[in-house]
């Protein structure tokens, strides 16, 4: 079967500043794939290209075999990819419910929003309790839950998470990762960008390592965890 997401030789730049040279990888349906790398390696840029927020200079992105790299961002969401941005990017002065509503903005997801909302509330009971509260008054962990829940409101086939552990206490990081596992178990494919390498590899099926805009290593999570180079560079062993 063809992979759900195929990224082939993409290159990208911010103005004159080249960020990606030659990035290729794929995600199979049902997998959790993690994209690892240091700050500035190009992980977020790769995600922005996939979600249509940044046009690639070259290369192709295909979802279920269909090229999507020329579509505008809203159309990419409609085709089934949603990105949970780094730093959550909630609307702090809107209520929890309004934030979720903005996640189900497309006509397709709007039609099913009542069921989706029940599903999201069953994954995050805390959000149900706080639905009338302003998003800005939630704790950091709750805000991350809301950001994920908001992304799920579009019923994505592929959920892309950018640094979901950012700024969270270790116990909350574990909680977030546990929820990602649960979401994946319910049939959502996951692409995870993380600096928290060990926990990301414990969760993921496979991983790719990005270094200065190129993929330098790839393998199953178990292989990468055993890779001496990765142990040295990212796990401090």
């Amino acid at each position: 079967m063809a992979p759900l997401l195929e990224v082939e030789k993409i290159a990208a730049a911010y103005g004159e500043v080249r960020a990606l040279w030659d990035v290729s990888f794929s995600v199979q349906t049902g997998e959790i794939v993690t994209l690892l790398g240091a700050n500035g390696a190009g992980k977020t840029t790769t995600m922005r290209v996939i979600s249509g927020l940044l046009r690639p200079l070259g290369g192709e992105v295909r979802l279920g075999g269909r090229p999507i790299h020329r579509l505008p961002a809203p159309r990419i969401v409609a085709s089934g990819i949603v990105q949970i941005p780094e730093g959550r990017r909630l609307w702090p002065r809107m209520s929890v419910l309004e934030n979720l509503e903005l996640g189900a903005y497309l006509p397709e997801s709007r039609a099913r929003r009542a069921q989706t909302l029940d599903w999201v509330f069953s994954l995050f009971p805390r959000l149900a309790e706080r639905r009338a509260q302003l998003a800005g008054t939630l704790s950091g962990g709750e805000q991350q839950m809301l950001a994920i829940g908001r992304g799920l409101m579009s019923r994505p086939r592929l959920l892309m998470l950018d640094e979901p552990s950012l700024g969270l206490a270790p116990i909350l990081v574990r909680e977030v990762f546990e929820i990602v596992r649960k979401i994946n178990a319910e049939g959502v494919t996951v692409l995870l960008v993380e600096q928290n390498v060990r926990q990301a590899l414990e969760l993921a099926t496979r991983g790719y390592v990005l270094e200065t805009g190129r993929i330098t290593r790839s393998g199953t999570a178990a292989e990468l965890l055993q890779d001496p180079e990765i142990k040295r560079a990212y796990l401090g062993m």
């Binding site: 979600s51 505008p72 961002a73 409609a78 990105q83 990017r89 903005l102 497309l106």
Partner: peptide
Amino acid sequence: SRVGLGLMALRMDLEAAESLGVRTA
């Protein structure tokens, strides 16, 4: 309305709105 919610969302964070499928343009 929904349009109003979208307009206010894009005022506060244009890119977040786009990345969720709000047709901001």
